[in-house]
């Protein structure tokens, strides 16, 4: 009997919805290139769509898969800074969201829960920036300040993006569009 891969457990329609969320992330990044010079504004759509993907699809790593697909799409069209490393930009917040969903699945339906997870997802940019700067040999204090600045804006935009996720998911649930499991997912 053929061993089932991880993807076999993900129904094709859910995989396609994840693909649409990933595509939406890229389209929003393209459309809303706010030339403010403020780091982190892209996190608004990134976190919102990652949470939407994980909230709508009953699959343990839905957000991470969305991030991977978004990264591959961004690479394909040459979007963003960093080339192939753009995948990591999407992946870190996605992993935070997936892990939070594993531990507290119902956080999606609570504004406080979503804001906390979004803040953590945004703050993952701190780790990303800190790690990069540490490997580059940055001055420790400057490294901390730079990472904190990057993370601050990312955090702010992430929280904004997550603000209405509970409302959206409640309305979807009321329509009987999907049924979310109580624990973790497939």
């Amino acid at each position: 009997m053929t061993k089932k891969t991880m993807l076999d457990r993900l129904p094709l329609n859910d995989a396609l919805f994840i693909g649409f969320c990933a595509g939406s992330m890229i389209v929003c990044k393209l459309l809303f290139r706010w030339h403010l010079g403020i780091n982190g504004h892209a996190m608004f759509f990134t976190v919102a769509l990652l949470m939407l993907a994980r909230g709508c699809v009953n699959y343990r790593w839905a957000a991470s898969l969305t991030a991977l697909l978004a990264g591959l799409m961004a690479m394909s069209i040459g979007l963003g800074k960093g080339g192939p490393l753009i995948v990591l930009k999407f992946l870190f917040p996605a992993l935070v969201i997936d892990l939070a969903a594993l531990l507290v699945p119902l956080f999606f339906y609570s504004v406080t829960g979503c804001m906390i997870v979004a803040a953590l997802a945004g703050a993952s940019k701190f780790i990303n920036s800190w790690l990069k700067g540490y490997l580059l040999g940055m001055d420790r204090i400057v490294l901390f300040q730079q990472s904190a600045l990057d993370a601050f804006f990312a955090l702010l935009f992430s929280c904004l993006g997550a603000l209405f996720i509970p409302s959206i998911l409640r309305k979807l649930k009321a329509r009987g569009v999907f049924v979310q499991p109580q624990q973790g997912g497939e």
């Binding site: 094709l12 209405f164 409302s167 309305k171 569009v177």
Partner: peptide
């Protein structure tokens, strides 16, 4: 924003879910 969610975002997500089901089928 509440009207934006109610009038556009939620119906758009429902539409996307329906479309993905059609494509998968």
């Amino acid at each position: 924003w509440p009207d934006f969610i109610t009038c556009l975002v939620v119906p758009a997500v429902v539409q996307a879910l329906a479309l993905t089901t059609e494509i998968a089928t």
